[in-house]
Design a protein around this nucleic acid. Sequence first.
DNA 1: ACAAAAGTGTTTTAACTACACCCATGG
DNA 2: CCATGGGTGTAGTTAAAACACTTTTGT
Lengths: 252, 252
Amino acid sequence: MYTNAANVTERQFVPPSLAISTVIFALRPSVTSGRPTLWLPLVRRIRQPYRGKWALPGGPLARSESLVEAAGRNLKETTQLEPGYLEQLYCFGAVDRSPAERVVSIVYWALVQAEAAAMAEETDNVRWFRADGLEELAFDHNEIVEYALWRLRNKMEYGSIAYHFLGDRFTLAQLREVYEAVLDKRLDPANFRRQLRGARDIEPTDEYLQGGRHRPPRLYRYRPEPAAAAGSGGADHQTQSNGVKHVRSDQH
Amino acid sequence: MYTNAANVTERQFVPPSLAISTVIFALRPSVTSGRPTLWLPLVRRIRQPYRGKWALPGGPLARSESLVEAAGRNLKETTQLEPGYLEQLYCFGAVDRSPAERVVSIVYWALVQAEAAAMAEETDNVRWFRADGLEELAFDHNEIVEYALWRLRNKMEYGSIAYHFLGDRFTLAQLREVYEAVLDKRLDPANFRRQLRGARDIEPTDEYLQGGRHRPPRLYRYRPEPAAAAGSGGADHQTQSNGVKHVRSDQH
DNA sequence: ACAAAAGTGTTTTAACTACACCCATGG
DNA sequence: CCATGGGTGTAGTTAAAACACTTTTGT
């Protein structure tokens, strides 16, 4: 297994260090069009390497916490928000992704509600950026964000995650705006409505959103869970999402 | 960030150790029906904890190798095979998944060809098991194998990975048997053929498989790549598969 | 010639798309 | 009453499922 004794010694005394980082997505109105767009918070590095550069929120793994708890802590320390949707993204471990020291990063991605994210005040070292067209970040974090964006769009197309950008009550137009913002394409309102009828994880309420300029739209809510048969496969693995595991309704 | 100094000290001196494990799938004929079924190799633990139990092949991460290289090494040391399809599965880091010491395991999953896997001789400490109905394994490895199975079936339904169970030339019936073995359901040969016509990553050759009992079926091959436009998104992340990245044709 | 698998065609069904149309509300 | 977004109906297209059918080989 080991080819020479020197390497064994080297490995035993200099193990790769482990870090947890989190890509946090929220929808905020675009400064230009006012339509919702994807944003994420970054933190400024205050020490070398990449001092002064923006980076994903992250830190070491506490001995007594699980990986997802560490990611939730990243989320809370950066945005003061409780984890809503939180899932493991990928583990990055290229040898040269950090200068000098070998660092293996386990990266999570999270979705938070727009209003809640708006309350999170920015400091000098924490700022929100539009997810597209990011400047050059520290380490391989540009690559990580790109991959998180791909996963988000991918999951949005057949998953049930769009709700986590919204509150517990929402109109279909709001939900459609979420899809349009993430997938970056317009959707037919009529067909969108029908598709969600079949989705089965959305439920109409008797309430209507008042105060709009036109006919008040009906409010919907995310159905807690259709009480799937216990032991039925198909659930995502270790996805913390308000304690509910999501089951794909259809995967082609 | 840290709540008390004692924890800081504890963490700094006892960091979680890092391990790479690999779930290796191959198709072998069932001893009863003769039809292909899913198998995977396990290694017997020769030290505590879980001494004598079967476990996934794995080991420490060498300082100079990437994560996928370490997984490829697992594969080669266990089966004497070169990595064909090899992809990161998940990172497992529950605090109590290993007694005494905290271990974070980055798990990969691999597919190897049936014939090649058949050549890999079994030793006293390496044996192949049917993937379904495994006995109790060391650590949380039963859970890991279950998750790997779920990912395999999931990916089989819309991905292009079935080929990696076969050689470079194969008949449609062989490919259909792969699908049937993994998904555990029968497929219509006629419709199966048409679906793969649209898949676009399969290519008929001018060769036919001789020596069968009936009409010789045409041989097909996996198309290296339809020369996708550079920079087009949608590829899987860091999937080593004969150097080819796979693009989902459709994800619902 | 016959069995059995290779391969093709056809009908049915379901889902998505596009778009015309009606409804309800604020101004 | 009119502009606007909420919400429904409907025809056209596409893809998959089910299954009858023809073709080609070894025995």
